[in-house]
Design a protein around this nucleic acid. Structure first.
Lengths: 138, 138
DNA sequence: TTTGATGTAACTCATTTAGTTACATCGAAA
DNA sequence: TTTCGATGTAACTAAATGAGTTACATCAAA
């Protein structure tokens, strides 16, 4: 199972986007997520590194670098999940075996296609859609 | 990242399907995968429990319960990955916060859609396709 | 200069994964 | 019927990951 970082990161960004005129502290965000402020600051660091938000050291508040319609769930996923491939493949299969010899390439293709399908779906949903589902639709 | 069980299970089934007239031992399969025979037997157990193969205790060999065209990568995925949801969601978000209150439902929807996209792609590929890519195509 | 915030290193604890040892049990051949 | 080689499975280990926590250097602003 994929870790909770993606879920928490979306939660964080939804908070920031929903209160653009308030300077949210990591402690406030943590109380909404129900975790430790350091966990939030770590994620804010990753989101900042990915260019999704901007912050100032020592000063409360975080701001989106672009509008919620321009931030996809895939952007968020990649920001907090540095791993390139979704599926792990066992290494050093026996190259003297016809199956072992070709399996990594074949798995790369199959898993790559599946990951692409997932990523295309994630890139079709934006932070704005999340806000809409949170506040407009029931 | 998703564990190597899916990859190894596909490897195992490709071996079984490619040598339908040989009784492969867990030791032989392990030498192709390059791991311990017990790891193979554990996976064979899961594949058997999922109804994909049949085995006899004490006797070498495993047999597909249906043809390679009728076994999808999604079948294999579900056989060795008992977890229902692909994405983890943090629990106990603050219900006094508007975002915290609705986030789990919204994440469930978004993650569910992404998982469905992944699973649809996995179900479009069969063990036969794997064999074809291993032995027919380059 | 004091206060309250961020940024980040370092540690802990729980969980998962993969590998391993050990052994009960079964099937088939000697 | 005994022996041999296989499966099935429990139990243990070691490594990796995830999430929470403490501690503290640093910065912004009053």
């Amino acid at each position: 199972m994929i870790n909770t970082r993606v879920a928490v990161a979306i939660h964080i960004l939804a908070l920031i986007a929903s209160k653009p005129h308030e300077d949210l502290t990591s402690e406030y965000i943590a109380s909404s997520v129900n975790t430790n402020p350091v966990v939030i600051r770590r994620l804010l660091g990753m989101l900042k590194k990915a260019g999704l938000i901007q912050t100032t050291a020592g000063k409360a508040g975080a701001w989106l670098t672009r509008g919620p319609t321009a931030i996809t769930l895939l952007d968020i996923f990649h920001a907090v999940e540095p791993n390139e491939s979704l599926f792990a493949i066992h290494d050093n299969p026996n190259t003297h075996c016809p199956v072992g010899k070709g399996i990594q390439r074949v798995l790369d293709e199959a898993f790559g296609a599946a990951q692409t399908a997932l990523e295309e779906r994630l890139s079709a949903e934006t932070l704005q859609d999340i806000l809409h589902r949170l506040f407009v639709e029931d």
